[in-house]
Amino acid sequence: MSILAKMKMQPLLSVRDLSKFYGGRIGCADVGFDLYPGEVLGIVGESGSGKSTLLSCLAGHLAPDRGEVIFDTKEGPRDTVQMAEAARRRLARTDWAYVHQNPRDGLRMGVSAGGNVGERLMAVGARHYGDIRAAAVDWLGRVEIAADRVDDRPSAFSGGMQQRLQIARNLVTGPRLVFMDEPTGGLDVSVQARLLDLLRGLVREMGLSAIIVTHDLAVVRLLADRLMVMKGGYVVEQGLTDQVLDDPQHAYTQLLVSSVLQV
């Protein structure tokens, strides 16, 4: 995207001075960035760096102590921190999607795969069983789950399948912003590669706007346009992904990149 195009465009998400404290300890502090439509932002850092706290504050799961999270809603830009919970939850089931690290947190384990994918459709008013089922089967196909598994419950699925099902469940209604918390965490390396491949395909094909938290630099290298590096609750470096990874400026980023290269 050219600089000019960006200037005319309204950011989808505008974060200012976001801070969250746990007693005297910093969760995350003074975080600010803009996310434009169609952009994928990666947030990396070791565990305890504040990246998960930040994501929770952005998605409205945690109340920050300070700062603004302005989302470009259909009625114009609104600070989701100040929003009534009702309005925030409406966003969560329409414009937003959230992919949890552990698929069990994002799926209804007692409901069939088809029901899981269909829930968001039904929540926004779909009332034709055949159509809902067809959409579910279509989405299962897009995440490489065989159509004959549509009536099986997620508990009968492997970890990788559960994660793909969670992605299908989230994307079926075409959300405008997707939050992902370590989407490949907890999976075998070969399964991770397949999932990454799939995610990359979906991101490009759907033009998704997404914020992905991960400790895995391979994930951001593949998916993210821009990168934020966090340490001790602060953002220490941000920029275009390739730039940050190929020419890290901050000592911590250098360490992070070199430790990956050693592997």
Binding site: E85, A86, R89, R90, R93, R108, V111, S112, G114, G115, G118, E119, R120, M122, A123, V124, R127, Y129, I132, R133, V150, D151
Partner: peptide
């Protein structure tokens, strides 16, 4: 009560969906 407030009735239809699929 929150679900009623938001007309968040998707789950109700999930139950009906599951009935039909089973």
């Amino acid at each position: 009560r929150k679900m009623h407030e938001l007309e968040d009735y998707g789950l109700m239809h999930v139950k009906l969906y599951e009935d039909i699929s089973r």
